[in-house]
Amino acid sequence: MSNDSQKAGDKFDQARRGFLEKLGKAAAGAGAASALPAPAWGGASFLEAFGDMFNKQYKKMTRKEIDAALSRIRRRALRQYGVEIDCDDTPPQENVVFGYAINISTCQGYRDCVHACVKENNLGRDSQVEYIRVLEMDQGTRNLEEADHYYDPDTVPVEGKYYLPVQCMQCDDPPCVKACPVEATWMEPDGIVVIDYDWCIGCRYCMAACPYWARHFNWSQPKLPPEEINTKTHYLGNRPRPRGVVEKCHFCIQRTREGGQPACMEACPTGARVFGNLLDPDSEIRYILENKTVFRLKEDLGTEPKLWYYTD
């Protein structure tokens, strides 16, 4: 884009924003005149309430626009839940590509990871969306059609069964990204496939494209008890989501980009989950990939998952 047309575009943006702000103030003024406590949308201005609809795609936003969007997210959370959240967009680290390995000899099927994930990532408590599904299968088989993720015995592990946690594999050649018609989902330089919730149109093509059933759709506004909201959020990660968008596991982007462990790994009492940098030859995950018996789920589809399973 030439400089001139860029400037013209900026001017248009400014004009549009100015118009929306004026509109909002006018409406608020009208509200005050008729002695209504606040505008119907609950915001201070029209832009405040509907600004997210006019966001650009995350990758095309300027720093200023991102900051505005982040502060809007914070104010919205305060209005909606009465909770002051901290939302940032920590960039990926240099020379880091994340990989995950799960030891299925050690996994006992406790589902601690599932519940830690729900809490960490502000998943709707009513929507039955869970990023991780733990499959129970007969030992000696790996027939996913016969796998059961509703298992509910008194104690696990059950004799003769083994457990295989399935979540987003963060494929290196992700079919969901190819399926998205609006580029609302893409792979970041550190290998995490992320979603821009404001850009997602909710068509669910990505869900159909994903061979791992890893993507989930918010049929309704996720219901979150205010006291359980995780206030540490990321723009591409666990910020409170609106209704009608797709979401999925993002390797706890708000933690891992700052060196922390994903919540599922931290919660796993058995130590079956190993997370690390695939580019670091001394990392634990590289030792596992080079020395243990590893496999990937549905590897024949060629999606190059970055989540491996291994056995002792």
């Binding site: 601690d112 059961d148 058995t270």
Partner: peptide, 25 residues
């Protein structure tokens, strides 16, 4: 040896759907 333990609650079944036992051939 790690003792067996009660698992955390499983996923809920979507409203309007019924839980179907996996087909076992």
């Amino acid at each position: 040896v790690i003792k067996p333990r009660e698992p955390m609650a499983g996923p809920g079944v979507r409203t309007g759907l019924e839980r179907v036992a996996p087909e076992r051939h």
